[in-house]
C-alpha cells in the first residue's frame, strides 16, 4: 500500500508537470485585410469570424476582405513565412517560443518598401491587429492569430 501511494504521488506529479510544459504544434494565421464601409457588406471570411465584432467596434468598418494570408504550423517555433497581396507583403519571422507565446518579428512591405516593423510575443489567447495605412476609402489591417 505504501509503494502504491508513492507511485500515485509520482504519477500525479509527472502528469501535472507534463501538462504544464507540453505545448503542441500550433498554427499561426496571418492576414492582410482591407476594412471598409459599404452599403451591403459581404460576409466576413471565416478566419476573421471570431474577431469580427471586435474589429467592427475598434475600427468602425462593416466589411472585411482578406487580400493576402498565410497559415503556418510552427514546429520548432523558429520559422518564417510571408503573407502577401499584389502590393503588400507581411514577412513574419518566428524567433522562438516562450511561455508568453511566439517571439515574432513582423515587417510590412509595400512592394519592396518597408512601411513598418514590430517585434511581438504573440499569445495564443490574444490576437494581434495592426492598423496599417489608409488604402482608398478603407484601411489595411494586419491580423495575426494563433489557432
Amino acid at each position: 500500500m505504501q509503494v502504491r501511494s508513492l507511485l500515485l504521488t509520482v504519477v500525479v506529479a509527472l502528469v501535472m508537470s507534463t501538462a504544464n510544459s507540453t505545448r503542441g504544434a500550433e498554427t499561426v494565421w496571418s492576414g492582410l485585410v482591407i476594412a471598409d464601409n459599404v452599403a451591403q457588406p459581404s460576409t466576413t471570411p471565416s478566419e476573421l469570424k471570431r474577431l469580427e465584432q471586435a474589429l467592427k467596434e475598434l475600427f468602425g468598418y462593416n466589411q472585411f476582405n482578406i487580400i493576402g494570408q498565410s497559415s503556418k504550423t510552427l514546429k520548432t517555433g523558429e520559422e518564417d513565412w510571408l503573407a502577401s497581396s499584389k502590393y503588400f507583403s507581411l514577412h513574419v519571422d518566428s524567433r522562438g517560443e516562450t511561455s508568453a507565446g511566439y517571439h515574432l518579428n513582423l515587417k510590412l512591405y509595400k512592394e519592396k518598401e518597408l512601411l513598418l516593423e514590430t517585434e511581438a510575443k504573440l499569445s495564443k489567447s490574444s490576437p494581434l491587429v495592426i492598423k496599417g495605412p489608409q488604402v482608398g476609402g478603407g484601411q489595411l489591417l494586419l491580423v495575426l492569430i494563433v489557432e
Binding site: Q53, T118, V129, G132, P133, L140
Partner: peptide, 15 residues
C-alpha cells in the same frame, strides 16, 4: 473584447 492586442498607427502615408 476578445483580448485583441492592437497596434494603432496614425499618420501613415495614405495609398
Amino acid at each position: 473584447k476578445d483580448r485583441v492586442t492592437v497596434i494603432w498607427t496614425e499618420g501613415l502615408q495614405s495609398l
